[in-house]
Deep mutational scan, measured.
Amino acid sequence: MDTYKLILNGKTLKGETTTEAVDAATAEKVFKHAANEHGVHGHWTYDPETKTFTVTE
């Protein structure tokens, strides 16, 4: 398992979190669910070198 990071750049919610996942696709599902639960919808990017997802509203 690897550690993946999410950076939230929402209009009303900003922050960072991490998750352990077997691959980037699994981490993305976890992060998108969490972002949706917090009402953050926007443009997603992924940097494979740093294993970091970013969502920007």
Rank of each mutant, 00 (worst) to 15 (best):
T19V: 14
H41S: 12
M1N: 08
D47P: 00
E16V: 12
H38C: 15
K14N: 09
E57C: 08
A34V: 15
V22N: 09
Y4N: 01
W44M: 04
T50W: 05
P48H: 09
E37Q: 13
T45N: 09
T54G: 03
E20L: 14
T54E: 06
A34Q: 13
E28H: 11
K51Y: 07
A27D: 00
P48T: 07
A34L: 15
K5D: 02
H43I: 14
D2P: 07
N36A: 14
A27K: 00
T54P: 00
T17Y: 15
K32G: 04
T12W: 14
T56R: 05
E37R: 11
G39A: 06
N9M: 12
E57Y: 06
T45A: 10
T17E: 12
A24I: 08
H38V: 15
G10H: 05
N9T: 07
G10R: 04
F31P: 00
P48Q: 08
T3W: 09
H33N: 13
T56G: 04
V22H: 10
I7C: 06
F53M: 01
D47F: 05
T17S: 10
A21N: 02
A24N: 04
A35L: 14
D47W: 05
G42P: 01
T50I: 06
G15R: 13
H33I: 14
V22W: 11
H33C: 11
T56M: 06
E57A: 06
G10Q: 04
F31H: 00
N9R: 10
N36I: 14
T52V: 06
V40I: 15
K51Q: 05
V22Y: 12
K14C: 15
H33Q: 14
V22R: 12
T3G: 04
A25Y: 10
T45K: 07
V30E: 08
G39T: 04
G10W: 07
T18K: 08
D47T: 06
E37Y: 10
E57F: 07
T50N: 09
T52I: 06
L8N: 01
V55S: 01
L6P: 02
A25H: 09
T52F: 03
G39M: 06
H41A: 10
H43D: 14
G10A: 06
A27N: 01
Y4W: 04
T26Y: 08
G39F: 09
F53C: 01
T17R: 13
T3Y: 06
H33D: 12
A21S: 06
T19Q: 05
A25N: 08
H41G: 07
T19G: 03
A25E: 12
T52P: 00
P48I: 08
H41T: 12
A35E: 02
D2F: 14
G10Y: 08
V55H: 01
T45D: 11
A35V: 10
A25D: 09
G39E: 05
K51H: 07
E16L: 08
D47L: 04
K5N: 05
A34G: 04
T18P: 01
T45H: 11
V22F: 11
T19H: 07
I7F: 06
T17N: 06
T18W: 13
K29A: 13
D2G: 09
E57M: 06
D23L: 03
W44H: 01
E16D: 05
L8P: 01
G39Y: 05
E37I: 12
H43Y: 13
E20W: 13
Y46M: 01
N36V: 11
V55G: 01
Y4M: 01
T52R: 02
F53A: 00
N36G: 10
A27P: 01
N36C: 12
H43L: 14
T54L: 05
V30T: 10
T50Y: 06
N9I: 15
E57V: 07
T56E: 08
E57K: 03
T54V: 07
A24P: 09
E49A: 13
H41W: 12
Y46W: 04
Y46V: 01
N9Y: 11
N36F: 13
L8E: 03
V22A: 13
F31V: 01
D47R: 04
K11P: 10
W44V: 02
